[in-house]
Design a protein around this nucleic acid. Structure first.
Lengths: 243, 243
DNA sequence: CCTGGAATAATTGTATACAAAATTAAGTGC
DNA sequence: GCACTTAATTTTGTATACAATTATTCCAGG
């Protein structure tokens, strides 16, 4: 195949959104986050390439990015890369969720420092999202995927409202990895959404009142609790991909 | 040139530490951090390649990494990359230093949660480093580079003592970018090192006493002050590389 | 002088060929 | 059957060729 790019005559099946490395990246990331690519599983450049219909070059680019973000690790000590899907461990979950808490906490602090008008607008939006979250949590049977997404939307709103490009980039890189843990174990911990709803309420209140310190602390607490809960669940359910 | 790797018969001048992409990455990063590659300056793959004696492939890998970490940005909206050294702006400095504060704050919190024995060992080491820092600050004429490095050693000690691999990786990616700002403007703000020494003392005390919350807050305060000072200095001295 | 546009050059994206490692398979002697 | 060596295969690292895109130059017309 010649090295044509962005040709207008795309074949029908590949809708082609974004550059090729981007496509590969998105595809692999989804597979990892959703567990189709199991922790510890090997990633072979040529295989991915043929499977997705690209050459190794864009695949390599995507893998590098995934590696840097931590979705993928290379066998340590080896001279050659040998990439595998990162294992899910208790320690990693704890560390990761706490980091997300810090980043989102900073974002919350900054929202709480915005002018009153903006704050009320954001809090109103957050209230609505929290109500959504609560409703999804009450609904039986619980749709775990929707529940995660409702929570995600709420948190993301805080970040988008205040974060500059640096914090956004960092958050975008780290959050999906937390998602890996949360999605995997959410079914085991979604029994008690009331606690989360209350924590969200505390966050929203602090933002509305413009109390930066309190908003930051509330977000961090929220995540710290999540970290503890998930670490506990992993302790029971066992780690996956590490042995 | 054939694609030989890790050959034992390296030419004398290239001592070859690490893989080729790693070498290129290190080299470019240093050039950017030390300002040899000015903010806004163009980065051309072939030029870098010939200058360092490698082909475009490893250069590309290094550039990608630099881009993801934020040292380098691609012209927005363009279809092709067009990489340039990231500009130094007031807003970016503020955002970046606050992020570092959060990450190191989390590290400090974790150190403060370690068993007493370990905490006393770390605090002793930190005390020594802080004394070093103070001494360097008093010495006339002030060696700004040494002053930065003394500060850096102290902060790094906290991170190394407690951070897991995730936090370490994140910190290693973000901190050198803060370094870019600090090194550039340190000569303008190193007049008053006493404030920094005191802030360090507060951090060390909290760690010694095992007060996680206070340790975290102290580190964040330290960085928030630095952020404010540097943002102010940039306001006076003017931004570089953005226009 | 400067404005527009075609020709030219520079630069990046992608595929691919080949080399170096590393892994696996296959013998071989015991 | 098992340890050990060697051959074959797989997989990654690097260089390079070519295409697509973007920037630059140059020249005519006003």
């Amino acid at each position: 195949m010649p090295a044509r790019r962005k040709s207008t005559d795309e074949t029908a099946q590949e809708t082609a959104h974004g550059t090729r490395p981007e496509q590969v990246y998105q595809r692999l990331r989804d597979l990892i986050v959703q567990g189709q690519l199991a922790p510890g599983g090997r990633l072979v450049e040529t295989e991915i390439g043929t499977r997705l219909g690209f050459s190794r070059t864009p695949v390599r680019e995507a893998l590098q990015r995934l590696q840097q973000e931590g979705f993928v690790v290379s066998a340590p000590g080896a001279q050659q890369a040998r990439l595998t899907v990162s294992p899910l461990t208790r320690a990693d979950a704890h560390e990761l969720l706490n980091i997300v808490g810090e980043l989102e906490g900073l974002a919350a602090r900054w929202v709480a420092m915005r002018p009153a008008e903006e704050r009320t607008a954001v809090s109103a939006e957050l209230e609505a999202l929290n109500a959504d979250f609560q409703r999804t949590g009450r609904h039986t049977p619980i749709d775990h995927s929707r529940l995660y997404e409702a929570d995600e939307r709420l948190h993301r709103t805080i970040v988008v409202a205040s974060a500059g490009p640096r914090l956004m980039a960092l958050h975008d890189g780290v959050k999906p990895q937390a998602e890996r843990y949360i999605r995997m174990y959410i079914s085991l911990l979604s029994g008690d959404t009331n606690a989360s709803v209350e924590e969200h309420t505390a966050i929203i209140g602090a933002i509305r009142d413009g109390e930066a310190e309190r908003a930051q602390a509330a977000v961090q607490t929220n995540w710290r609790h999540a970290a503890e809960r998930i670490a506990m669940v992993i302790g029971i359910a066992g780690e996956r991909g590490s042995w």
